[in-house]
């Protein structure tokens, strides 16, 4: 399965869902295909899942999608038992698992290239709907359910290692700009102040 093809299919279907992305090539690809105010590109490893939890708990009426990578989830495995116990019904986590630290440019294998099964780790942590998909059709099925149904979902997407994102021109939106765009969007759509300035 190719990550870009997953995003190409999903991006036009998104409406008011919030999306949090981590660091790997997925942030470049999603940022290229989506460009929504509801996207929060964190640009760091090990943080997207937890930030997504905070958003899902703060805004239970909004659906929160988190796009993670194997390396990023492995960096913060303690998130999984916390996520299981909090069990936000409005959250879907998609872990794009290419089994490598491809950003290192030497394609160093991650633990999922060895014995580690992230869906099993999530399941063992208590996340009931924890599955692995490796075909685009199965990704579409899970993503469709995430768009339309309730319930916490944790979907490990086995993908081919791709360096296609290196050919995509990077966004020149900086992180603070991303934050304010996201927060002002929430203020507008939720009808409540979040960051109040009195300049």
């Amino acid at each position: 399965m190719i990550r870009y093809e997953c995003f190409e299919w999903l991006a036009p279907l998104m409406t008011d869902q919030l999306v949090v992305t981590s660091l790997s090539g997925q942030r470049v690809e999603w940022g290229h295909l989506s460009k929504r105010e509801a996207d929060l590109n964190l640009g760091s490893m090990g943080n997207a899942l937890a930030v997504g939890i905070g958003l899902a708990l703060a805004l239970p009426q909004r659906k929160v999608f988190v796009f993670e990578s194997d390396g990023s989830v492995l960096l913060s495995l303690f998130n999984l038992p916390t996520l299981a116990n909090l069990n936000p019904p409005n959250m879907a986590v998609f872990v794009f698992d290419n089994q490598a630290y491809s950003g290192t440019r030497i394609s160093y294998p991650s633990a999922t290239a060895g014995k580690t099964d992230l869906a099993a780790v999530a399941k063992g942590s208590g996340i009931e709907h924890s599955v692995t998909v490796s075909a685009l059709a199965d990704f579409k099925k899970e993503a469709t359910a995430a768009l339309h149904d309730g319930g916490l979902r944790f979907v490990v997407c086995k993908i081919e290692e791709s360096v296609g994102h290196r050919n995509i021109t990077r966004s020149d939106v900086d992180l603070l700009e991303t934050k304010y765009r996201f927060v002002r969007y929430l203020e507008r759509t939720e009808g409540k102040p979040i960051f109040q300035g009195r300049g």
Binding site: I53, L55, L57, A58, F78, K179, V183
Partner: peptide, 24 residues
């Protein structure tokens, strides 16, 4: 208060940050 128990202080910060960006 909405109390959120965590497994690591690292995620206490990141979950808290998500909630703050969501208006809490």
């Amino acid at each position: 208060f909405k109390l959120i128990a965590v497994s690591s202080e690292a995620e206490a910060v990141t979950i808290g940050a998500g909630a703050a960006l969501g208006g809490k």
